[in-house]
């Protein structure tokens, strides 16, 4: 699991942390169990927080119930727009 720079104070500075689960949702739940400071910061009751987006490998995902393969990289990324 890759943590964006702005949230690393919640993971003790770690940019990459291991987390397990069969779906993206389960992986994030496991991440939050390990780092309770992230509770409500990644997903809330309505889904992914609007300031973030999530990718598995190089693919952005829109469904938290999407399956995650063993060893896959899950990226939490800061939302950005542009001019």
């Amino acid at each position: 699991m890759f943590i964006p720079a702005m949230m690393r104070s919640m993971t003790g500075g770690a940019a990459q942390v291991p987390a397990s689960g069969a779906t993206v949702r389960a992986v994030i739940e496991d991440l939050v169990r390990q780092h309770p400071g992230l509770a409500g910061r990644v997903v809330d009751e309505n889904g992914v927080r609007p300031e973030l987006f999530i990718a598995v490998g190089s693919e952005e995902i829109f469904n938290l119930d999407q399956a995650v393969a063993e060893g896959a990289e899950v990226h939490l990324l800061a939302a950005i727009a542009g001019g």
């Binding site: 890759f2 964006p4 940019a15 990459q16 990718a55 490998g57 190089s58 693919e59 990289e73 990226h75 990324l77 800061a78």
Partner: peptide, 9 residues
């Protein structure tokens, strides 16, 4: 790997 850590498409 791009600058945010994830691979480019």
């Amino acid at each position: 790997r791009g600058p945010m850590g994830m691979p480019f498409s």
